[in-house]
């Protein structure tokens, strides 16, 4: 089977919350100094989902990423994990897109890649948390899609997916070609072994500019946006924590219960 996995480079979401800063004039997040970007968490899990199917049935995994100034060591991580090829849509014109312009460019690139059985995406990216690009690609390509997968298996050309819902999960079957978005319940992505990192270092990414995928620069990135960002801001936290003390932890715990009763919380 052939797989395509869409991944996004984002500021590290595990960076300490105190280091998170917004530049209000530019309406942009200031990347925390000294913290390198990463592949968005759910996208790494999407790579893992594809690798598990490749381990079981063989096949080829093409990784696709869109952005500008993509850090090679970062976007090559899926290759180090075991993916085969890397296509980068890299150009200033792709920057600052919304879900629509991003899904449009990715769908055009996928048409150019051609043959595939399953496209994997993360459920949402760790920066804008929009949660639409995967479904959008499927709609633009006219292929079926299942969201929030926690398990994906294939047999006899059928794909069986367990998708997470509020009170459990649903089991569904979907024909190929299709697109599946994955969620963290699928499990931890594997580590990249040293051998994989060395292999990845030798793989040259294919780079496609807007013209290469047959799109006008007015349709991608900031120019192609349909959702206008009016304002980006950090909510103010006025909370002040009252730390309850005691002779020891157990004593503090007793005092906490008393304090909560006094404050009519319990």
């Amino acid at each position: 089977m052939d797989f395509i996995v869409c991944v996004k480079q984002v500021p590290d979401p595990e960076a300490p919350p105190a280091s998170f800063k917004v530049d209000p004039a530019a309406n942009k997040v200031v990347p925390p100094p000294g913290v390198p970007p990463v592949i968005s968490t759910f996208d790494e899990i999407a790579v893992e989902a594809a690798l598990r199917l490749k381990d079981a049935h063989g096949g080829k995994i093409t990784v696709l990423s869109l952005g500008n100034n993509l850090v090679r060591d970062v976007v090559k991580k899926p290759l180090a994990m075991g993916a085969d090829e890397l296509v980068l849509l890299e150009d200033p014109a792709y920057e600052d897109g919304d879900s629509w312009s991003t899904a449009y460019a990715l769908s055009m690139a996928i048409k150019k890649i051609g043959a595939y059985d399953i496209i994997f995406c993360g459920r949402q990216a760790a920066d804008w948390d929009a949660g639409q690009v995967g479904v959008g690609i499927a709609e633009l390509l006219g292929i079926p899609t299942v969201t929030l997968a926690k398990k994906v298996e294939t047999s006899d050309g059928k794909v069986r997916v367990e998708r997470v819902v509020a009170d459990g999960y649903e089991v569904v079957e979907i024909p190929t070609p299709c697109l599946i978005t994955v969620t963290n319940e699928l499990g931890e992505p594997r580590y990249a072994p040293l051998k994989g990192i060395m292999k990845a270092a030798k793989i040259q990414p294919t780079i496609w500019k807007p013209g290469d995928i047959g799109v006008d620069t007015a349709q991608v990135g900031a120019a192609g946006r349909r959702a206008k960002l009016v304002k980006l801001f950090q909510p103010v936290k006025e909370g002040k924590c009252e730390i309850i003390e005691g002779e020891n932890v157990a004593d503090a715990a007793v005092n906490l219960a008393k304090r909560l009763r006094e404050a009519k919380v319990i």
């Binding site: 936290k237 909370g239 924590c241 009252e242 730390i243 309850i244 003390e245 005691g246 020891n248 932890v249 157990a250 004593d251 503090a252 715990a253 007793v254 906490l256 219960a257 304090r259 909560l260 404050a263 919380v265």
Partner: peptide, 20 residues
């Protein structure tokens, strides 16, 4: 969490929870 909470204790939950 202490920047978000109204009340808190600093300590190991294993000691705090039974007494609480």
């Amino acid at each position: 969490i202490f920047r978000e909470a109204g009340f808190g204790i600093v300590g190991d939950w294993k000691q705090a929870l039974p007494a609480f």
